[in-house]
């Protein structure tokens, strides 16, 4: 085994993992603040890419404008979903977590249907942000898009660290995550904070979709798979902290990449789900311990 190939696999694992990490962050922020596991998270990812297809490829908007507009559209959808579906369901006292979980599966199917009406059943791709001329690093190659992905991941991690350690909004989110009743007693509008968490989760999903579409293609029905990968990454991190979600994402990306090495190439997706099953068998209490009303 040549070191070049190992480096190549590591690099590609890290970039795929970075995408999983961003999606996992969306999962975790929504879960921690609202107690909801949002299985429509993958649809936010796909919609980010598809909106970009419309804005950039069809309408020929410049990249930054199309990028921001796509994020805004998906965030708006996240807000709408939270207000029209999640909040009413959370307000029904004693509504078990499982009921809302099933509802998010319904929402994901609903969004898929909507997307197939708007964008049809074709597969789409997007131009790379800054060309697709490979860069050589010690005998391995990387695309500029990979650098964009890693750069955005670092940026997002830093921005979230600042949000939670330096801003009163971030502190209010942490307080709500820990004890919503006590947070309300502090004058914090808990429903608004939950809304913010959905907006943030949707936005992170959209950014992941925008970043990854140039190298993977996208289509209306791709959300389930990529969303579940993000969920596996979040579970690997124990559904707890943002740092662990990022590590979980990277670990999953690397595991998938190295599974190709041992002849698992066709079973790359299966690798993720084997990991998920192991987590659910041995850590299910850890992952789902935070049942709330």
């Amino acid at each position: 085994m040549s070191p070049d190939i190992l480096l190549q696999i590591t690099l590609s694992g890290i970039t795929t993992g970075a995408i999983y990490a961003i999606i996992a962050l969306g999962f975790i922020i929504i879960f921690k603040v609202s107690g909801v596991i949002n299985l429509a998270q993958g649809e936010f990812v796909i919609l980010g890419g598809l909106a970009m297809v419309t804005f950039q490829a069809s309408l020929k908007w410049p990249l930054p404008v199309a990028f921001l507009s796509s994020v805004v559209v998906v965030v708006a959808l996240g807000i709408l979903i939270e207000r029209l579906a999640i909040t009413p369901a959370r307000r029904a006292r004693g509504a078990p977590l499982a009921r809302i979980l099933i509802m998010t599966i319904g929402l994901s199917t609903f969004i898929k249907g909507g997307a197939s009406i708007i964008w049809g059943k074709d597969q789409y791709y997007l131009p790379h942000f800054t060309g697709d001329k490979p860069i050589f690093i010690f005998g391995a190659t990387m695309l500029p898009q990979h650098i964009w992905i890693l750069g955005f991941t670092v940026l997002i991690a830093l921005a979230l660290a600042l949000l939670f350690s330096r801003t009163s909004l971030g502190k209010a989110m942490l307080a709500t995550a820990e004890n919503p009743d006590a947070a309300a007693l502090m004058g914090i509008n808990v429903n608004l904070i939950v809304l913010v968490s959905f907006a943030l989760g949707a936005g992170l999903g959209a950014i992941a979709g925008l970043l990854v579409t140039p190298i993977t293609f996208t289509g209306y029905d791709r959300g389930t798979m990529i969303g579940l990968k993000g969920f596996v990454a979040a579970s690997m991190g124990g559904m707890g902290s943002t740092t662990w979600a990022i590590l979980g994402g990277l670990a999953l990306g690397l595991a998938e990449a190295f599974s190709t090495l041992v002849g698992f190439g066709e079973l790359k997706d299966a690798t993720s789900f084997m990991i998920l099953m192991v987590i659910l068998f041995f850590m299910s209490r850890g992952v789902f311990a935070r049942a709330r009303t």
């Binding site: 942490l174 307080a175 820990e178 502090m186």
Partner: peptide, 13 residues
């Protein structure tokens, strides 16, 4: 709020 600092607890109010 056990996971937040004493000062953060006070400032949240």
């Amino acid at each position: 709020f056990a996971s937040l600092s004493v000062l953060d607890n006070l400032m949240l109010a």
